[in-house]
């Protein structure tokens, strides 16, 4: 680890000022950033600890939704009564991630900004455009079993590893941020980026901006939902493919469908046109299969991860079936 200076901010404004300094980074739970610093993948010269800022509450908004403070812990969020009763999909997604110990440390804001788990990103002795722009991508020709099949570029095929974010995408959350130029709200679909030719940028958050909260709209799809996570072991493993599925049903007719995929792209993957195929249709396996096909349109494997295309289709069908039957998880 390289030497760095350290400061604790008590409020958003000073935090924003501190982080505007050369080489500065926020640190919240530290469960991702510290690991990456130890292996020299990230080397901020100034750390701004934001855990003293009072941004850890979870409360209802005037619009009838809820607001998750950026510093609320993943565990506290998942077990919060408002979340458990009104947004159980989010609760399940969070609990499918990491381990109990990690969730006790990890914050909601940090979860959004956790970095990819691509093997090569983690090893400074290998070329990686995300870590070192222009050095090349080792994964495209290399071991890419865990990596993306959708929205990839010739520069990077990394995935965003979060589970929580998959649920937030399906629930159409917004991310509240504050920077030197004031506050703004970013729709979840625009928060993370595709790699394109700037794979070193994971999100559209500006370097001087802090996440203050995540807001959820009123509809939490609390009746018909599923978070299905497929992985190589039953816990403490990232998703090969995950699906957050939520349905509004009238009888067996779908009024609204939300589907987001994790583990398949540089951001939680949503295809609203494909979701729309279900609107007004019967909740049947055949219809779910049609949606699954549409969702994976344009998917491309890189050898080791070819299987994800078929797996994602099957997972979508299974998740929608479970959501219909009110089965929350696999």
């Amino acid at each position: 680890m390289r030497p760095f200076t350290f400061t604790q901010s008590q409020d958003v404004d000073t935090a924003v000022q501190e982080v505007s300094k050369e080489g500065a980074k926020f640190i919240a739970g530290g469960t991702n950033l510290l690991d990456l610093m130890k292996i020299d993948v990230m080397s901020p010269s100034h750390l701004v600890d934001i855990t003293q800022i009072a941004l850890d509450t979870i409360e209802e908004t005037e619009a009838g939704g809820i607001r998750l403070g950026a510093l609320a812990k993943n565990a506290d969020t998942a077990y919060h009564e408002l979340v458990e009763t009104r947004y159980p999909l989010l609760s399940h997604a969070i609990l499918a991630g990491a381990t109990a110990q990690l969730r006790n440390m990890a914050t909601d804001g940090g979860n959004l900004l956790q970095r990819t788990r691509c093997y090569y990103f983690y090893d400074t002795h290998t070329p990686c455009n995300k870590r070192e722009p222009g050095s090349g991508c080792s994964a495209i020709q290399g071991y890419n079993r865990d990596l993306a099949i959708l929205g990839t570029s010739e520069h990077c095929i990394a995935t965003h590893p979060s589970d929580m974010c998959v649920a937030l995408a399906a629930l159409e959350a917004t991310v509240q941020v504050t920077g030197k130029n004031g506050a703004r709200s970013i729709p979840f679909a625009n928060f993370h980026r595709l790699p394109g030719d700037t794979p070193h940028l994971d999100s559209n958050l500006q370097p001087d901006e802090i996440i203050t909260a995540i807001e959820l709209p009123a509809n939490g799809f609390a009746t018909h939902y599923t978070y299905l996570k497929l992985r190589d072991r039953a816990s403490y493993a990232f998703a090969l493919v995950s699906v957050a599925a939520a349905l509004e049903l009238e009888g067996n007719t779908v009024k609204e469908a939300r589907i987001a995929l994790g583990g398949v792209a540089h951001k939680p993957w949503r295809v609203p046109q494909a979701e729309a195929l279900l609107h007004g249709q019967q909740a049947t396996r055949e219809n779910f299969q049609k949606v699954a096909e549409a969702y994976l349109e344009g998917a491309k494997g890189f050898g080791h991860n070819d299987f994800k295309i078929e797996l994602a289709k099957r997972a979508i069908v299974r998740a929608l079936e479970q959501a219909t039957k009110k089965e929350a998880t696999a």
Binding site: R117, Y119, Y120, D123, T126, S138, G142, Y143, F238
Partner: peptide, 13 residues
């Protein structure tokens, strides 16, 4: 990784 001649899964994650 045979191109790099290197074991790549070198942590417990």
């Amino acid at each position: 990784d045979h191109q790099l001649g290197r074991f790549m899964t070198h942590d417990l994650d």
